[in-house]
Design a protein around this nucleic acid. Structure first.
Lengths: 118, 118
DNA sequence: CCGAATCCATGTCGATACTG
DNA sequence: CAGTATCGACATGGATTCGG
């Protein structure tokens, strides 16, 4: 049977979630609520400013997070998960839990492989 | 609050699903059951042999699909979703459905934007 | 404080040709 | 039939510098 790639929309969700820091950023924002740019930066010690900005803008583009700029000096920018963005939460949680189990599964396979090799 | 990236296992699942053809291959195998290499190739008209081989091997590596080689000429190789691999099905379906809705959501936002611009 | 701009290393994917 | 091998285009992510 021929496959019609256009009918599969898994990639729509994947595209939004893929990005080295996006799951982390999203889960953090979902848990903590509104956060300033600098707060997020402090929470992700390893990320560069460029990457944090980029990932947030991409999420904003898809209406997953909201970006709120305060007209003041020094600047203040807040990010919040949109109501719509919340619809991704159950998927993220499901993937996290699958990932936890996958770690165990991998270990188990390693052990089986090791004992089969002796 | 500082984030501990090691505690988030979303990427474990993401890494397995990411790949231009993996969701398509997986959903197809889940639906159709066991398939030969050439059947898969025919089902994905756009994919190259190299990519199909690569994506299948990566899925095999993670115990998501099983690869069965028959010792005969001409060669025959069959691929099947493992029992373990089935645990990804609900996530794939959830992502597909989220994607379907996201298409609608995007259209709606476009229309709102257009009418706000006049 | 929040970000834009630039340069560079690496990885992914496609096209193409070849093999047991 | 079911792969490998090689090459090159392009995208992603990191380091660094500059700006309002």
């Amino acid at each position: 049977m021929k496959i019609e790639p256009e009918l599969c929309r898994v990639d729509d969700a994947l595209d939004i979630l893929v990005g080295k820091w996006k799951p982390l950023i999203l889960l953090h924002l979902m848990k903590e609520g509104t956060q300033r740019f600098s707060e997020l930066k402090r929470s992700l010690p390893e990320i560069t400013q460029k990457m944090l900005t980029k990932q947030l803008r991409e999420l904003e583009e898809e209406d997953i997070v909201e970006r709120k700029v305060y007209a003041q000096v020094p600047p203040k920018v807040e990010y919040t998960v949109t109501e719509y963005g919340r619809s991704l939460e159950s998927i993220l949680v499901a993937m996290h839990e699958w990932g936890l189990n996958h770690q165990k599964h991998k270990l188990q396979r390693q052990m089986e492989k090791a004992s089969a090799a002796e």
